[in-house]
Write a protein that binds this DNA or RNA. Structure first.
Lengths: 211, 211
DNA sequence: ACCTGAACACCGTTCAAGT
DNA sequence: ACCTGAACACCGTTCAAGT
């Protein structure tokens, strides 16, 4: 609808310079900046409160309570975040960015160690941080867009895995999705018990069978 | 409060035989039998409806809907089943009994094959039957009472595992709880996708690492 | 003793009414 | 354009009132 604007040549207040100034002011001051700052403020508060409450109560925390605690109406929360998952995505954005950086660091190590260390650290991190395991679930990620938490972790895993495959460090026929599902499953089941998460992941890496 | 009853020697209606008959009738006809048949009918209906709706919607199905569908008040459901888990326990009683029988059959095989087959079949079964994975979660089982779904599966796993340990078929340091948690984690994460459940369980059995 | 309707305190979602 | 209160249709739980 930007085709119809006050800047149309048929529109003339007799004081065009002020009109333009007003229009610009409306766009930059009232429409874009202040509303955006409102949005930014609400957005920041919602994500911060959500992070605190998810850490306390887990991924199933009441959205109503998040909105209440952030001092906004629940309708505002739903306007910004169309789904619980959308909010969780933002909550764990930084954590996942940190994990991706860690994957980059590990790329210096030999491919086998790099992948195995990554999988273990990822599992322990997800079990240590309430709600993080939930956000790694492939089913909740609408698609595997690379900017989602799941997508970012998937890409990092793929990178380390492709190098590991070149030195035959991974059993043939295993897909990145298999590994991520396994990590997600273990971390979800051991949420709040990181030692158990590490133990089970190592168990799956080495195999339950002896010899 | 059974210490105080109409049968107390100080209680005399002057027609003791009828009084006793009435009391017996009350206990057997009115109090015990008919109420018990009410209970049995409601109990059976609730469990049957719950089984159908859990199969359709998963473990998080609305209890309200179960009560509605069974034609009882939701208060009646809560009277019979103090928690969602208590209801799920009954829903999967038969499934778990069947699994236990299967574990008994497998005891004929060599210890290594028996345990590995058991773990895979258990995982695939739990991933195939909506809600079953949820009921295997140790956290939801108040204690590891052997009559709970979790307890029964745990006992069966322990039996097969102790034999497998004697022939060193299982990596040292692995506990039955580790195995059950792993099975639960994988089946929960792959609910509705039994092939994926089997693939991931075999992956964990053999190990992700190559060689 | 057992069952139930009703009440209670929630929840997530939507939308007309405000600014 | 954005926010909000209010309404809506739920949910699980509890309990007084019935039989």
């Amino acid at each position: 609808m930007w085709g119809i604007t006050p800047f149309d040549s048929s529109y003339d207040t007799g004081c065009p310079s002020i009109s333009v100034k007003w229009a610009v002011s409306l766009m930059t001051e009232r429409k874009v900046r202040p509303q955006r700052s409102d949005w930014q403020r609400n957005h920041k508060r919602l994500v911060a409160v959500a992070a605190a409450l998810v850490a306390r109560d887990g991924a199933q925390v009441s959205l109503e309570e998040i909105a209440r605690e952030a001092g906004v109406g629940s309708a505002t929360l739903h306007r910004h975040f169309p789904s619980r998952h959308a909010l969780l995505e933002e909550v764990f954005q930084d954590s996942v960015a940190h994990l991706r950086r860690r994957a980059g660091e590990l790329a210096d190590k030999d491919p086998r160690t790099a992948l195995l260390t990554w999988l273990e650290e990822l599992t322990v991190a997800a079990a240590s941080t309430r709600g993080l395991a939930a956000v790694l679930d492939a089913a909740d990620s609408t698609a595997s867009y690379s900017h989602t938490c799941h997508g970012i972790v998937r890409e990092a895993t793929e990178g380390l895995m492709s190098r590991a495959l070149q030195v035959a460090a991974v059993r043939p026929g295993v897909s990145p999705d298999d590994l991520i599902t396994l990590v997600q499953a273990i971390s979800q089941a051991t949420e709040g018990d990181p030692p158990a998460a590490g133990r089970l992941l190592r168990l799956a890496l080495e195999g339950i069978r002896h010899q």
